[in-house]
Simulated assay, not measured.
Amino acid sequence: MQLAPDIERRLERIGWRTQVLPSDVPAEWLVARVVVQHRAGYQLHDGDTLFNAQPAARFLKRDIDPTERPAVGDFVMFVPGAPPVIERILPRRTELRRGAAGENHQRQIIAANVDAVFVLNGLDGDFNPARIERYLLMIQSSGALPIVVLTKADRASDADDIFAELRQRVPPPLEMFAVNAKSADSVAPLVAYLGLGQTAVLVGSSGVGKSTLTNTLLGHERMATATVREHDSRGRHTTTHRALIQLPSGGCLIDTPGMREVKLTGEEELDRSQFADIDELASSCRFGDCGHVSEPGCAVRAALSDGSLDPARWQNYLKLRGELVAAADALEAQLRRKGENRVLTKSLGKRLHEK
């Protein structure tokens, strides 16, 4: 099933890319994009109109994988009505996930169908290279392009030095920009990623300037902003839910609440991330099971000694590697339990039917 050209042009305003729709959908089903998700339901946009909608009953089942529910950025097919009902999620071209907060080891969709992820970190007391590396690892398997945006460049007298220091930990070709989020001229390089049909999402902790940047890209103040605490430069949550916004440049921007916890899903791969060089270095040790502590011929210890490997970067690599192993093990155990529960439920149902 192919959409009419005029409908595709309309949907392009909210980031649509031409794709063939499923052939089994009823003719009365329509396409829109999820722009807001909240407890009472969803808000959709069809390129012309913003309206409320409810998910079909199967999306509300308690045992459903959260990643199988509609998320901000999704293109969905809905049935018109009062209210409209979301019936199907169209295939996602990209999917930004994190591990859900808590101990349930579930995955959570941050945003779907995004082309770029702007990782914001302030050039103030909250500057944290390790947190940036964590975000980049989370983005690595999403299919989207990561871009580091260092905000509050107007407040940091040593912005150039910090930028150069971070570049040692985050080498090219990854793009990095230092900006004043209140200045349209300063953030102009980001507009190149926000043209017609393009979507970007903002991630970062509270107080880094996500809402300020959104307002500047919009050209007017729409998102609430707040000052940060002086003693640690951390902010309060001024954005309370994810929301997709259309920009004058033709693209779309998804603003997100500040993340207190950036939890790995267990699906990330360190040897394909910004740590690929460390992973390769570790594999060149004399012994395959080198613990990188006191073994002879350890390439990692040699690199730490001669200064070619940053000790802070190495420690963060070890921390993330440990978390990644634990998350992968927890995810595998959860999937195994789900499989066992499914078998038990089928067996119980069969016995009851026979009885």
Rank of each mutant, 00 (worst) to 15 (best):
L120Y: 08
F118V: 12
D115W: 09
Q140P: 02
H105G: 01
G99S: 11
A100D: 07
Y135E: 07
N128S: 13
A101M: 10
G125Q: 12
E103K: 12
D115F: 07
N121S: 15
I109V: 15
R134Y: 10
I132E: 00
I109E: 00
I110H: 04
I132N: 01
Q106K: 13
L136V: 06
L120H: 06
R97A: 00
I110G: 05
V117A: 12
P129D: 03
R107H: 13
N121V: 09
A116D: 10
G99H: 10
P129H: 06
V119W: 02
N113D: 11
R131C: 07
R97F: 10
N128F: 05
E133N: 13
N104H: 13
G102Y: 08
I132D: 04
N113Y: 02
R98S: 06
D124Q: 14
Y135W: 14
R107T: 12
M138E: 09
A101K: 12
A111R: 07
D124H: 11
A130R: 15
L123G: 08
N104K: 12
R107Y: 01
G102P: 07
I109S: 08
N104F: 02
G102F: 10
G122A: 15
D124N: 15
I139A: 05
N113E: 04
R98Q: 04
Q140L: 02
V117C: 08
R134D: 05
L120G: 03
A116H: 12
G122L: 04
L136D: 00
N104Q: 12
Q106D: 09
Q140R: 07
V114D: 03
V117F: 03
Q140V: 01
R107P: 00
N121W: 01
A116T: 15
R97Y: 09
G99F: 06
L120K: 10
E133M: 13
Q140S: 15
D126G: 13
F127I: 10
R131E: 06
